[in-house]
Amino acid sequence: MSLADVVRPYGDTTGDGRVQVSFTLPVPAVSAADRAVAEGAALQLAGKMGLSPAMVVHTKPVGPDFTFFIVYGRVSHLVDLSAVVVAPREFELLSPAEVNLRIRAALGRKLVVVGATVGTDAHTVGIDAILNVKGHAGEKGLEYYREIRVVNLGAQVPIGSLVERSAAERADAVLVSQVVTQRDAHLSNARELAAAFRAAPEFAAPRHWPLLVVGGPRFDPSAAEAASLGVDKIFGRGTTPGEVASYLAHALAPVPAPAAAGER
């Protein structure tokens, strides 16, 4: 570790350690007396979080029994950049033309992708950003790729219906986006998704169950998390259509290994 690797939060001036946090406490703040107690509770929590000094800069009642706070303060903690571990991407990023070529050469047909949000999740922004031709972040979605056939089922799709439709479409990959995460619904839904596909008679031998890919802002994209949920791949916040397309080509349309000398 060198001094160049050590940083502190920046607020008003470089290295002043100033941070801003927000949270909700189950305390009322309707009356002036209630508000004073609520803000005292917020400052107590901020102190236990290591903010010193701290000040409450925003207080807003959320109904009669809850209060939302924004607290500004200083922390003494240092960040060691040399200790940050970033998992390397296990596949190369390909252009749309390269993805199409890989799929055509490896499969000899279009790669079928079925996408949806499941359970009670009505948010389609994430799945549409990946699948729709308009795409996201300057990249066109999977509908733009000539060698990918996209079936977008939309929002609030029951997992059983997703399994049935994936079987009917002979899906190579199933993409599920989860934005609603209260009580870790994204995790329980992912586990239920994996279990449903594994148990489905439609995907019994000799057919294999499709590649299961989940994504959303609250997922941990690590391989360990994917294994614990029973899915093949997790994409987190900021994922672009090109990343997903490149992964699908990597996983489902690999480049054949060159023949060793004497095997030709």
Rank of each mutant, 00 (worst) to 15 (best):
G160S: 04
I148F: 08
I70W: 06
T24R: 13
A190P: 06
G160Q: 06
K110S: 12
G73H: 00
D121K: 01
V213T: 00
R18D: 04
P28A: 08
N132H: 14
G138Q: 09
L111H: 02
N189G: 03
P26C: 06
P221W: 05
G73Y: 02
L43Q: 02
Y72I: 09
G115P: 12
A105F: 07
V19F: 01
R35W: 03
A185K: 08
E143I: 02
A200F: 00
L111S: 01
L3Q: 13
A195R: 14
V75I: 15
V176I: 14
A200I: 02
P254Y: 03
S228F: 10
A257T: 11
I159Y: 02
D5W: 10
E139S: 08
D5H: 06
L187I: 13
L101D: 11
P88A: 13
D121T: 01
R89L: 03
T24I: 15
D5M: 14
R74G: 06
S228C: 09
F235Y: 02
L131I: 14
R102G: 05
A196M: 04
T14R: 14
G47M: 05
V75L: 06
E169M: 15
V75H: 06
V231R: 04
H250L: 04
T181H: 15
E164L: 09
S76L: 04
L211V: 01
G47E: 04
V244N: 09
H208W: 01
F66L: 11
V157L: 10
V62P: 09
T24F: 10
R109M: 01
